[in-house]
Amino acid sequence: MPGNILWWAGYIAAGIWLQKLAPGLDALVPGLIVCLQEGNRQQTTLFLLLCILIQEGAGSLPFGQSIIWYGTVMAFYHIGGWFFMAGNFVFILILSLALSLARLLIFLGMWLLQSLPLSALAPPSDFVGSYILQAACIPPLWLLAVKTRRRAESNAN
């Protein structure tokens, strides 16, 4: 149990640092996918609350966007689970692409909801780049999380 808490604390700290180094990236999503795969509801709820708190606290938009974002992650994961094996790397690849596209749509929706002018968006290269980066980062981060988690569990046993 303490090992589990330590692992998650380490993961969140690493995620925060990654987000600092790559602006616009959500590095906590792979952790949420790991939580969903493990099926531990208490752990998932706690991690989800922490994710919302961190992203909303450090973000610059009114409260709420992360609820839709993480809700979409959970919904896409469960929908994908009907068609694919949830632990399969190909599933994670498809999920990351779908999530990146969904994030773009959520972002544009929220942008319009708050009456912010479209002309004020970041240059297209930066704007699109952050979504490509998001799609590219989820699979390796998930793989790294799963591998280190397995190793931590085997060490604990």
Partner: peptide
Amino acid sequence: VIAGKFGPQAVLNSVM
């Protein structure tokens, strides 16, 4: 300044 735009919610031009 400890961070620039941070996370997916940071859509405004901001620093931390």
